[in-house]
Simulated assay, not measured.
Amino acid sequence: MRRVPLPLVLVCGALLLVASCGWSRAADSDEGRAPGAPTGVTAAAGSATSVHVMWNAVTDGPGVRTYEVYRGTTKVKEVPGAQHMVDVTRLRPSTLYAFTVQARDTDGRLGPPSRAVRARTPAMAAADRSAPTRPPRPAGRPAGSRAAQLSWGASRDDRGVASYDVYQGGVKIHSVGGNQTATVVTGLRPGTAYVFTVRARDAADNLSPASGPVRLTTPGTDDGRDTAPTGFTATTHRAGGAYYIDLSWIAPRTDGVITEYQIQLDGTAATSLVWGGTPPPGRARHSFYVGEAAGEEHRVRLRARLPDGTWGGYSAERTVTTGG
């Protein structure tokens, strides 16, 4: 069985709409041409000296290796094909900038630029370059099988702490006000090991170093069945001389919104689907490119990243054959 390259990440959101991201079939592919122009490009000032640029994944062609971000005609960032957002820094306050994005495929071909998007940086406020101190004395304990009680000492900041962010495994899962040094994190799984950290944020968006880790395990057992997508189906279709795998599933029921899935193809993590906003209700659908050869057999399944920052159980595995 021949392996084929896959697009690594698909970013979806209420303002980011592409053919294969609207849960319709992916665009026709042609390995003989460069990738298309990125769509859904947005730019928003993050501070007086930075702009956050975001775009949709390019899904046509043999696969995107990198994206290049331009400020006017100057290339300012280059990111891997799995990444679809970036902060452009070292800008001037009170300045209007125009940004475009181009995709470079795995064969080195550079596609056309996206439409230009503009963002104006605000005026520089009174300087505040001092981040809060690391939250001291973090502690925690299970509060039943699906929650944890966390606490920490107050951070110090020259202008005051605006909020505290709680992370689990590198994923931000909770936030509380700057006058609060304890919280209950809910929506956890029984019998699951967690590592929490806390970071303080001030009004100028300066972020403290992470606190020491809080390690705990919720009581009970969890075999992952309740966290796996259900009703999972997989079929194939042919378009433009290429084959695509069509997936359909129902999201697991959780205490929060699921915005990310990981697709496993032939035993290897192949593609991530990430919504930038609220995912569509009901049955989800997604198609992705797997090559031009007929008669190839593939095994596919997927799992969700749960609101607690952990991966849920895998769906049932399905086997499909291109052209079958």
Results as ranks from 00 to 15, higher is better:
Val117Cys: 07
Val88Pro: 12
Pro113Ser: 11
Ala127Gly: 01
Met85Lys: 05
Thr74Ile: 12
Arg118Phe: 13
Thr95Val: 06
Ala82Ile: 05
Ala98Met: 04
Ser114Met: 14
Arg92Ala: 14
Thr95Gly: 09
Tyr97Asp: 10
Leu91Cys: 07
Arg71Ser: 12
Val79Phe: 02
Pro122Leu: 11
Pro80Phe: 06
Ala103Trp: 03
Asp107Thr: 11
Val86His: 08
Asp87Cys: 03
Asp87Ser: 10
Pro93Cys: 08
Pro93Lys: 04
Asp105Leu: 09
Ala119Asp: 08
Gln102Ala: 06
Val101Asp: 11
Gly81Met: 08
Met85Asn: 12
Leu96Gly: 12
Asp107Ile: 00
Thr73Met: 10
Ala119Val: 02
Gln102Lys: 08
Ser114Tyr: 12
His84Glu: 15
Ala126Thr: 12
Lys77Ala: 15
Asp105Cys: 07
Ala116Leu: 08
Lys77Trp: 08
Ala126Phe: 10
Ala116Phe: 11
Asp105Arg: 02
Arg118Met: 12
Pro112Met: 00
Ala125Leu: 13
Arg118Gly: 00
Val117Leu: 05
Asp105Met: 08
Ala98Val: 04
Gly81Ile: 08
Glu78Pro: 08
Ala131Gly: 02
Val101Asn: 04
Gly72Pro: 05
Arg118Trp: 11
Pro132Trp: 05
Gly72Lys: 01
Ala119Leu: 00
Val86Leu: 08
Thr73Ser: 15
Thr73Lys: 11
Arg109Gly: 00
Arg90Ser: 14
Thr74Gly: 09
Met124Val: 10
Ala82Trp: 09
Ala98Ile: 04
Gly111Ile: 00
Ala123His: 02
Pro132Tyr: 05
Phe99Met: 05
Leu91Val: 06
Ser114Asp: 15
Asp128Pro: 05
Ala123Ser: 05
Tyr70Arg: 03
Pro132Glu: 11
Val101Ala: 07
Val101Thr: 04
Thr95Asn: 10
Arg92Gly: 09
Pro113Ala: 14
Ala123Gln: 03
Pro122Ala: 12
Ala98Leu: 04
Tyr70Lys: 04
